[in-house]
């Protein structure tokens, strides 16, 4: 699904990613953990196509295509979805209008006809149930006046509507209480299939009790320094990240 090789990236001449490698196959869930400032969110932003970063080395292939050469919107239309850590408010633009535009742009890109109003509304009803999102929120302005939890649920709702091949959840768990966390995780699990993949970026192990990863990677100082099965997350929770740092120094 996605292959990242030796990725180096700078922001304003400061190196953030320093040779990151990662391969995610269809049907897999990968968790990326790491201390603050390790480059987790940078990775998510670069994959989504944010322009603030300069890629100095390396490659990213998404379904066989060179991802880094694709426009942000084309990455999205090809099925890459980023659940934002801080979802943006867009005053005056209703969620519904926003999503219908997004879905139709994707369909046009794929050579399909626009979705009918009836099908669209049926889809909204079905998917909003999935994340227990109040139907009223669907008609409100995008993220405007939403609580933190509602914003995150709205991200998963949008994910459900857009049915991406690869979803990247950037700290989707931060700030959520346990009920909201369960809802979000349930949404993600329901959407999981053999044809799609998920990258879960998180600081805390807690989320991984609900979204069980196939692999856990530790991102530290711009590189993946350790990978392992889901148990690695528990170990990290218990021992903290200093342990990894020490191991690195010893090596």
């Amino acid at each position: 699904m996605i292959t990242i090789k030796n990725l180096h990236a700078n922001i304003e001449d400061k190196a953030i990613l320093k040779g990151l490698n990662l391969e995610v196959k269809a049907g897999e869930v990968h968790a990326i953990m790491g201390p603050n400032g390790a480059g987790k969110s940078t990775l998510a932003s670069i994959l989504a196509g944010k322009e603030d970063y300069e890629i100095t080395e390396g490659s990213v292939s998404f379904d066989g295509e060179d991802l880094l050469e694709m426009e942000t919107e084309d990455r999205a239309r090809e099925g890459l979805f980023l659940a934002f850590q801080y979802p943006v408010e867009i005053p005056g633009v209703s969620n519904i209008n926003f999503l219908r535009t997004a879905i139709n742009e994707k369909r046009e890109h794929l050579g399909e006809d626009p979705i009918s109003a009836k099908d669209f509304m049926a889809l909204v009803r079905e998917k909003s149930k999935l994340v227990e999102l109040d139907a009223k929120l669907a008609s409100r302005s995008v993220n405007e006046g939403f609580s933190g939890g509602e914003k995150k649920r709205n991200e998963i709702f949008q994910m459900a509507m857009l049915e991406p091949k690869l979803a990247i959840l950037d700290e989707t768990d931060s700030g959520l209480d346990i009920d909201a966390l369960r809802i979000v995780a349930n949404g993600v699990n329901t959407l999981k299939s053999d044809n799609n993949a998920t990258i879960v970026i998180t600081h805390y192990q807690r989320l991984l009790d609900y979204i069980v990863p196939d692999f856990v990677h530790v991102l530290y100082d711009g590189r993946i320094v350790k990978s392992g099965p889901k148990e690695l997350a528990l170990e990290l929770e218990e021992k903290g990240y200093d342990w990894i740092k020490e191991e690195l120094v010893e090596a």
């Binding site: 942000t72 919107e73 084309d74 239309r77 943006v88 926003f98």
Partner: peptide, 14 residues
């Protein structure tokens, strides 16, 4: 805001 829209597959003009 524009980046958020782009990430959802909506081009800049739209």
């Amino acid at each position: 805001q524009i980046f958020y829209c782009l990430q959802r597959g909506i081009d800049e003009e739209k």
